[in-house]
């Protein structure tokens, strides 16, 4: 079979492109450690969040050396705690659930973005950088007040974080 020289060129370029795409995704997973939103969390009762030890009191907790967890409840129309305060240059795992309808959890301008489904817990782990205030928005239409549904994720210095948490509950 005769293959035109241009066809061969194009085939080679296509294969190169495929290798490049696979290579990039592999690099992302191995280098910066990019991962998917986990679906491993067991379902919970959305009607009984006030009896759940994680979500009855939405909060940020230290769980390890420079590791924190944030338990967040989304509702019509807001997020709790508000603001969500986490320290800079740390690893933060967000556990987000809803007590009414489907919401979104998007830290504006960042890669932290997940759906929030009642009865399910969305878990995402992120690395924070320097201190900064991020907007937090709901990106799933959830009712009449959807457009005003917002929160804040404040990345603060370690000292400020410690001060806040020793001074009482900020939630």
């Amino acid at each position: 079979m005769h293959i035109h020289a241009y066809e061969k060129l194009w085939l080679a370029a296509s294969i190169l492109l495929i290798l490049l795409l696979i290579g990039s995704v592999t690099y992302g997973a191995v280098g910066p450690g990019v991962a998917m939103v986990s679906d491993s969390e067991p379902p919970i009762d959305a009607q009984a969040l006030d009896e759940d030890d994680r979500f009855s009191e939405p909060r940020v907790e230290q769980v390890g050396d420079n590791e924190y967890v944030a338990y967040v409840v989304a509702y019509q129309f807001g997020f709790e705690p508000s603001p969500i305060v986490v320290p800079e240059n740390s690893t933060v795992t967000f556990y987000v659930t809803s007590r009414d309808v489907i919401h979104g959890f998007e830290v504006a301008g960042t890669n932290a973005n997940t759906m929030v489904v009642p009865g399910e817990v969305s878990k995402i782990t992120v690395k924070t950088d320097d201190r900064q205030e991020y907007g937090l928005i709901c990106n799933e239409y959830c009712g009449a007040g959807h457009h005003v549904m917002e929160g804040k994720v404040n990345v603060v210095s370690q000292a400020e974080f410690d001060e806040r948490n020793s001074g009482g509950d900020d939630a």
């Binding site: 992302g28 910066p32 990019v34 890669n111 932290a112 782990t125 992120v126 690395k127 924070t128």
Partner: peptide, 26 residues
């Protein structure tokens, strides 16, 4: 087209996506 595709991919993945804050690692 191919060059545009390559440049767009490099920009979207390496600069826009990996360059943003709060990269999801788990």
């Amino acid at each position: 087209y191919f060059v545009i595709l390559l440049l767009a991919w490099v920009y979207i993945y390496y600069i826009e996506f990996l360059g943003r804050d709060l990269v999801v690692v788990g």
